Computed example of a mutant assay.
Amino acid sequence: MSYSFDFSGLSQGYDELLQGLKVTVELTIAANLIGVTLGFIVALLVMSKLKLVRTPAMLFVEFFRCTPAIIQIVWFFYCVPILFDVYLDSLTMGVLALGLNLTAFNAEAYRAAIQSVPREQHDAGIALGLSPLQRVLYIVLPHAVRASVPVLITNGIGIFQQTALVAIVAIQDLMYQGKALATTTYRPIETFTVIAIIYFAISFPIAQLVQAIERRREMASR
């Protein structure tokens, strides 16, 4: 290979990359707050005995799980303003698209965790006179959160990586700034190598944390 790597030219764009990383982190945090919160609510709706409640929730989950995230992002940016006459800033649109995508995947994680709650705990809540809402808040929710933490964190890593897709609608995240820098410096290989390293440096430690949590849980269950 005759290609000569030269990273020196990237020094002029470090500030822009850091600014892009800041936007990426903001998108990730906001999307995770939506996904973790709404995911539990959607999981309860999916498990409802009422078909009128269950069916729309299931359609929501399947739509976001079975369509590409990039299509969802583009749809939000171009279709929502036209169809619903709702105009939000690009960052908010990105947060909503990513947050609802994460909600669908987290809902499945919560649903599996809720189904694993021992029947005895439900019976104990009924025996104590707890209302259905109290049983959800004090019995189901704590168990579901503990059981689904590894999956929720893994999904959170995935949404961090998927934030790169918002560059297609001109949100100035890390990927967007990287593309601009690659065009300016004529060094796409070096630029995208640095960007890949940044994504890896953030994702890898969190992935290791997930593995540590799972190992600890396995040891505790023995």
Rank of each mutant, 00 (worst) to 15 (best):
L44K: 10
P188G: 12
L10G: 01
S90C: 02
Y176H: 15
A97P: 12
A104G: 07
L102H: 08
T191H: 09
P142G: 09
L100Y: 03
V151L: 15
R111G: 10
E108S: 03
T103L: 01
L88Q: 10
E120P: 00
P205Q: 04
E120N: 02
G9D: 09
V53E: 04
R111S: 15
E62K: 01
D173H: 09
Y87R: 08
T184H: 01
M93F: 10
S2K: 10
Y138E: 02
R119A: 14
G178Q: 01
Y176P: 05
P56M: 03
A180S: 13
P142Y: 10
I71M: 14
G125N: 01
L130Y: 02
A57S: 13
F200W: 15
E190A: 11
L44N: 08
V74R: 03
M1A: 14
G129Y: 07
C79L: 10
S116C: 03
L52T: 15
L100I: 01
V149G: 05
Y110N: 07
A127W: 03
L137K: 13
D173M: 09
F105I: 09
P188T: 08
A107K: 02
D6T: 09
S8W: 07
C66E: 13
I157E: 06
R119M: 12
N106I: 11
Y138Q: 03
F192P: 04
A144E: 12
F7Q: 01
I213A: 06
I202F: 05
Q115Y: 02
K51F: 03
P56C: 09
I198M: 13
L102C: 11
F7A: 08
W75C: 05
Y199A: 07
A127I: 11
I126G: 02
L181R: 00
L10I: 12
I195F: 03
A30Q: 04
L52V: 05
S90F: 03
L38V: 06
A127N: 08
S116D: 07
L137N: 11
V53F: 06
R54Q: 15
R111T: 11
P142H: 10
S131Q: 08
G156K: 10
V80I: 15
Q72C: 11
L130E: 00
E16H: 01
L96W: 06
V53S: 07
I29L: 06
A170C: 14
D6E: 14
S221K: 12
L209S: 07
F160V: 01
I41P: 09
Q162H: 12
D85Y: 02
I114G: 08
L181C: 14
I206F: 06
L152Q: 12
F64M: 00
I157A: 11
V149T: 13
G125T: 05
E62V: 02
F64Y: 14
F84V: 09
L96N: 02
P68T: 01
D123I: 00
S90D: 14
G9W: 04
S221I: 10
A144Q: 09
R217K: 15
V145M: 13
F63H: 06
E120T: 07
N106R: 06
F64L: 05
L141I: 06
Q177H: 00
V151Y: 02
N155P: 12
Y3A: 13
A124P: 11
E214I: 04
L38E: 07
V80E: 00
